[in-house]
Write a protein that binds this DNA or RNA. Sequence first.
DNA 1: TTCAATAGTGAACGATGCGTTCACTAAATG
DNA 2: CATTTAGTGAACGCATCGTTCACTATTGAA
Lengths: 203, 203
Amino acid sequence: MTESTTGRRRGDDLERAIFEAALEELAEVGYANLRMEAVAARAKAGKASLYKRWPDRAHLIRAAARYKATVAETEFEPSGDLRGDLLKVMRFIASYQGGPFGEAIRGWVGELGASGRDEGAAEAEAEELRNRIEAPRIRIFAKILEHGIEQGTVRPEALLPRVVNLAPSLLTHYFLTRGHPAPEHVIDEILDQIVMPLLTPDH
Amino acid sequence: MTESTTGRRRGDDLERAIFEAALEELAEVGYANLRMEAVAARAKAGKASLYKRWPDRAHLIRAAARYKATVAETEFEPSGDLRGDLLKVMRFIASYQGGPFGEAIRGWVGELGASGRDEGAAEAEAEELRNRIEAPRIRIFAKILEHGIEQGTVRPEALLPRVVNLAPSLLTHYFLTRGHPAPEHVIDEILDQIVMPLLTPDH
DNA sequence: TTCAATAGTGAACGATGCGTTCACTAAATG
DNA sequence: CATTTAGTGAACGCATCGTTCACTATTGAA
């Protein structure tokens, strides 16, 4: 029995509860106001259990983001309507940024520049999380683009990582610098003024 | 006499010294590790003088960023070489992000999502700083683009704020998510895979 | 079934940095 | 020279960090 609803939890069971608590706290108070005691209390765990697993707040939140990213793997099948498909995925990303995951990203970004850490380890950790976020996106957008290339609605030269990641990058930039996810009309502008013209063979 | 090198400074004189100290600290330890006492000590000022001017660390750093942005107003005259001009300005932005100003931006971004503040005031402050950063960029990039349009090397439809701001947005996104400014080869890719194709009339 | 090993709890602790206060002092004003 | 204004530096209370410890629940092997 792993799913005992009563008594004292341990191992992965407890770890999941802590992640869920951390993500809920993130959504409610944001990264800057997140308190370890609050996470522990919400998870009905001791603070020591948190520090036994992660050395500090930054590590816990990155781990929670990884956990959430793993849980949220989605599959997407292009419909053939290029703009419609892009719009759909972009809306999904924006809505995701509005939740705890977005706050986790913000906190992670906020700590990135701090010097005086183990540069190598920090670099590796940053890259691992980035890959975990970017990799699924790339797959989905690449699929949409490949579909478009077959149909002749997308330039074949557009299938480069930097181009494939363009829309998500702009959404993330908006989210980070505005404090909230891109609203509908911004998504439209990104699509119509930047992404579509770049993908389409003729202007 | 405003520029007394000895004795006790006051007013703008002291304020500038605090800003310079804050920016130096930012460059050395990053926003996440910035201590008010350290700023005060470096400026040879009392902590009380800091809190008399700004309510907290976030306000001080935003003010320092404004101060730096004001000081750094630059003029730029397009040479006529579209790609060369864009490259030059992008290099400048990247180098800027490598210094204290970049760390100020990172800290500001890190605090943006925190709930529980005066939403209106925070929103206004964020927008003011954003405008102060974006406005000069827009002017420079718009100038380059207008020049290109006259020469026929740039599509006239490309003169939209979102397009004009594209290159800086991607540089900022890179800086925020990687922890360091975009290196030369990334700037090249952004130019050759995204910005140039979007501006140029024929692919 | 018992019991030792393992893992979590909850409270207390020292350390640190926040933002405030206050008595003192230097600079500007007139 | 007297008064007002502004900065200094030290001390303070507070919140949160990350740690420690005595105690307790769970696990699994004897």
